[in-house]
Nucleic acid binder design. Structure first.
Length: 511
DNA sequence: TGTGTCTGCCCC
DNA sequence: ATTCTGC
DNA sequence: GCAGAATGGGCAGACACA
């Protein structure tokens, strides 16, 4: 298949507003594709590269290249060139990557260039990614969407599903089942505001501590143990303690789902930054392990010795987990059989409070009868985390992109310092409705003291209430702290900058 | 050798 | 990660 | 309710450059 066909389809999909139309355009594209090209086509149309990372980012893409007048690139050729770019390393790598990129873009027409730039920078913005691409694929192959979606969740690979489906037809979908050694997309949770709301929504449930580490899925087949992250990256080599621990379990074949994090001597969780740093270390794993040992805490079992448990009710899965995994490696849990019973509700509230006292992030409330919905953000899992708020001062704002073009979007936030100035603590663009975006753009223009290429700096007069999940240490900001997951709640025009919260009060929230 | 910049289906 | 918006 | 878009901070690793 020619790149030109893909670039044109992407443009048409972006121009279509109705989802059904996007699906139809995708189906047309898949029907025209050679099954051998299908893996690459579906990945491109869902906005990602088969190479995962190619070492080329926004900065390298910035400069303009003269386009080719005629289309002459095929998808296989493009894929091969990107593979070569990804493989470049060592001294002079940046120059060599740039040279290969010039070669690629020089052979592309203007429309193809635009597509490649959007694809490589990760900003496809065609209003259709994974889910819509899968619908298009299903439609092209005449297969039920639910079956195709299920195959993708269980194989973790739209590419593999696309090739099999287009070459062998819908009946071949049956071979995509949970396979020990091949990760499935993890089940995710929705958010609830409080315990009571969560209990009301799930019914009979279990509360589990929500630990602040990284999500892992561990597969064991005999002595072969593999550790995967939430995005299914293989981090086995970085986590030898997980391998050793799972190898010691009294079972031959198993798939476990849990959280990996560092604890201190007293059993309290270390700051997320330490866990994150450790799981990112590859050069000296043994040294890193000594400095920051990690402990897995499991909360799900998806397979045991030949038996798949995805459709098994949560309560039964948990009973199996209890038999297989020692208590120290199982998440703490409280069953709430009858959420209407005031006593049980009180116990649930106490459990959640205790989790926070123990230094955990919050709790996850899980329906007792639910199966494991791989890759879905089901309503049977609800996370509850405390929310903090602060009154901060807007110091500046950045121009938005895409659907936010022309509006001042990303706010620079400051807290009051001892000397009466304001220290920047972070940025946020979240929580803003279109109406608020319009309002703040006008308001900030009036307060502007300097126009920059990226946006504006303003007189520090506007107070905004910001919600966030916690504070963490920062090397980027002058006060040495920043907010985690900051979002706008509302503007406080009734408040003066002198009413804003202080740097000191923010720093006091560090764990 | 040390420091700065860019990158990432990164992790959250 | 969170949030808003169109479907 | 789902899916997509628009963006946050920190971190380690890889390379460029002085």
């Amino acid at each position: 298949m020619r790149l030109a066909d893909i670039a044109r389809a992407s443009r048409d999909i972006g121009a279509a507003s109705a989802r059904t139309e996007k699906v139809a355009l995708l189906a047309e594209l898949f029907r025209a594709a050679d099954p051998a090209d299908a893996p690459v086509v579906i990945m491109y149309m869902s906005g990602r590269l088969p190479q995962r990372r190619i070492g080329v980012g926004w900065n390298t893409l910035r400069e303009r290249r003269e386009p080719s007048p005629e289309p002459r690139l095929g998808v296989r050729e493009v894929d091969a060139l990107l593979t070569r770019i990804a493989a470049v390393s060592g001294k002079g790598a940046q120059g060599e990557r740039k040279r290969l990129l010039d070669e690629l873009l020089g052979a592309a027409t203007e429309e193809e260039q635009l597509f490649l730039l959007r694809l490589i920078s990760g900003e496809l913005r065609q209003g259709a990614l994974d889910a819509v691409a899968v619908e298009g694929l299903a439609s092209a192959a005449g297969a039920p969407v639910a079956d195709v979606r299920q195959a993708v969740m269980l194989s973790g690979s739209p590419a593999a599903v696309a090739e099999v489906l287009l070459s062998r037809g819908p009946s071949a979908l049956a071979e995509f089942r949970l396979t020990v050694g091949r990760p499935v997309l993890p089940m995710l949770a929705h958010t609830a505001k409080g315990i009571d709301e969560a209990l009301a929504r799930t019914g009979p449930c279990a509360l589990e501590e929500k630990l602040d580490g990284i999500r892992i899925q561990v597969h064991r087949d005999g002595d072969d143990v593999r550790v995967f992250t939430r995005t299914l990256a293989d981090i086995t080599d970085r986590t030898p303690e997980v391998v050793a621990l799972v190898r010691a379990l009294p079972v031959r074949r198993v798939v476990l789902d849990g959280e990996l994090l560092a604890f201190d001597e007293r059993g309290r969780p270390r700051p997320f930054q330490e866990t994150s740093g450790r799981t990112g270390s590859t050069l000296d794993v043994a040294g890193a392990q000594t400095a920051v040992p990690l402990s897995p805490v499991f909360f799900e079992v998806l397979h045991v010795d030949g038996e798949d448990l995805l459709d098994t009710p949560a309560a039964e899965r948990r009973a199996l987990l209890d038999r297989l995994v020692p208590e120290a490696q199982r998440v703490r849990r409280l069953v709430v059989a009858d959420p209407t019973d005031p006593k049980e509700r009180a116990a649930a509230a106490a459990f959640a409070a205790e989790a926070l006292e123990r230094g955990q992030e919050g709790v996850v409330v899980k329906s007792l009868d639910a199966g494991y919905s791989a890759g879905r953000r089901g309503t049977s899992w609800l996370k509850v985390k405390p929310v903090h708020t602060l009154d901060l001062v807007v110091l500046g704002a950045e121009w938005g992109h895409g659907r936010r073009t022309g509006t001042l979007s990303n706010l620079h936030l400051g807290a009051r310092a001892a000397d009466g100035t304001f220290a920047m603590l972070g940025k946020t663009f979240k929580g803003l409705t279109d109406a608020l975006l319009t309002w703040q753009t006008e308001r900030l223009r009036k307060l502007t003291v300097a126009e920059e290429t990226w946006g504006v700096t303003v007189r520090p007069e506007l107070v905004v209430e910001i919600a966030f999940d916690g504070v963490q240490r920062s090397t980027r900001y002058p006060a040495g702290v920043t907010l985690r997951f900051a979002r706008v709640v509302r503007y406080r025009e009734d408040k003066l900058p002198s009413d804003a919260d202080t740097v000191e009060s923010v720093t006091a929230l560090l764990p």
